[in-house]
Amino acid sequence: MKKAIKASALGAFALSVLLGAAAPSAAVELRFAVGSPPNSLGDKAANHFKDKLEEYSNGETTVKVYPLSLLNLLESNNGIRDGIADIATVLWPYFLSEYPETNLIAEAASMSELLEGDRQQATLAYLGAMIEYVAMHCPECQAEAKAQNQVFLAGLGTSSYVLQCMKPVSSYEDLQGLRVRAGGAWWSRWLTGMGASPVSLSINETFEGLNQGILDCTASNPGDMTQFGFIDVISDVTVGVPGSSFAFAIADINLDTWTSLSEEQRGHVLHAAAAISGDGIMAYFHDGRENVEEKAPARGIAIHQADDDLLARSREWIAADLDALAASYEERFGIENAKGKLENLRKLVDEWMPRMEGIDDRDALAQVLWENVYSKLDVKTYGM
């Protein structure tokens, strides 16, 4: 009799385990901290992530977006690490000592300027390669995120930078001695190499710097013209230089949150990660193109093309800087085989060029990223 009762109890336990395994995962709400204000590009991208994640999970996994209220961009890295938010944007160049391996790849965005063909296609090819490299081919990048109690989810990057100025600039001679806001180390080096004087100002101080005559120009992506109001003060825009893209993580997730999700939920999150990258990247391109081709001319702002001599000097400088970049990171951060890593990245960029041909909307870009990166990640082990 006791044996029968024991067998019955074991059978009931086994059934409960099977039913538990088959049962749907518990509903989850994730907190997404956006370091930019409501209705900004970052806020819109986060809300697109929210919508797609809820769609993919049939409402099981939801997201609450906090634009510039839970964490700002300087607080985001520690905020994710400490669990203040589940997901947030991490601007890698703001945290150079924490992410040297990842920043090596981000700072190599200028290689897109050396590719022949369509500029948008070339920049998109770099961004696709960057996302693939960090997610799939860089255990050191993964280790850097893990050390911050994070998992890399979604990469983002801007369209090529342009000069937004208070005077006409189109030649190497025009640049000599100009005070230009540099948004990162690469642009500071480029400006120095072209004879200008880089000025370090936050993006939020740049409008006043231009308006008060502290700056002659800002080297910024063309989307920032309206995002930060530069269109209200500048008189001239120069396209073709300095180029390069500001690459970063639009979404990293807290490692504890990630491990608490079921494998199915992680799959949904990765699918939504492809969507947020597609949305944010294309927003930069579309906003920038509209600003340069329509909004700026409508304000009477003159649009200049960098002349052939300046373009040639710039390309020559970019090639030399890329050669020096690997040695610099090896010396400063002890990175091993940095040159080989950049060569591997360049091979990926070449692979991504045909994939990005004709890509000009967020859904198409998200699909390419899903097919070539996110769908290939193993939800059982990724980020662990």
Rank of each mutant, 00 (worst) to 15 (best):
E98H: 12
L91N: 10
N344E: 15
G288I: 03
T218I: 04
D360C: 14
V237H: 06
L68F: 06
A88V: 04
M353K: 13
N77P: 02
V169G: 07
S159I: 11
L41H: 02
E205L: 02
L15Y: 00
E55P: 10
M136N: 09
G183V: 03
A109R: 08
L104P: 11
D43E: 04
L365T: 04
F152D: 11
Y161D: 09
K146P: 04
S76F: 07
A26S: 13
T381L: 08
Y374E: 13
G340P: 10
D174L: 01
L369W: 10
P24V: 04
S260Y: 00
D309V: 13
G358R: 09
G243T: 00
D378T: 10
K146C: 01
G128E: 06
M166S: 07
V241P: 02
E351Q: 14
A109I: 05
G280L: 05
I276C: 10
V269P: 08
A338K: 02
K295T: 14
A275C: 12
N58P: 06
K380V: 12
Y99I: 05
R313N: 08
K376W: 12
S40V: 10
F152E: 12
F333P: 00
K380A: 15
G117L: 07
Y284W: 08
A85M: 04
A106Y: 04
V34Y: 01
L70Q: 02
I303A: 07
E116D: 12
L18I: 08
R355F: 15
Y161M: 11
V241L: 09
D308S: 13
I203T: 12
E55M: 12
V151K: 02
L377A: 00
Q121M: 06
Y284Q: 05
A143Q: 12
L325C: 05
P354Q: 14
A219R: 01
A143E: 13
A251D: 05
S112I: 01
F228R: 08
I84C: 06
V90D: 00
H48G: 07
K380E: 15
G128D: 07
P38K: 12
D236P: 02
I80G: 06
F230E: 03
S188A: 14
D378S: 11
E205I: 02
S160G: 09
L345T: 11
Y382Q: 05
S112V: 00
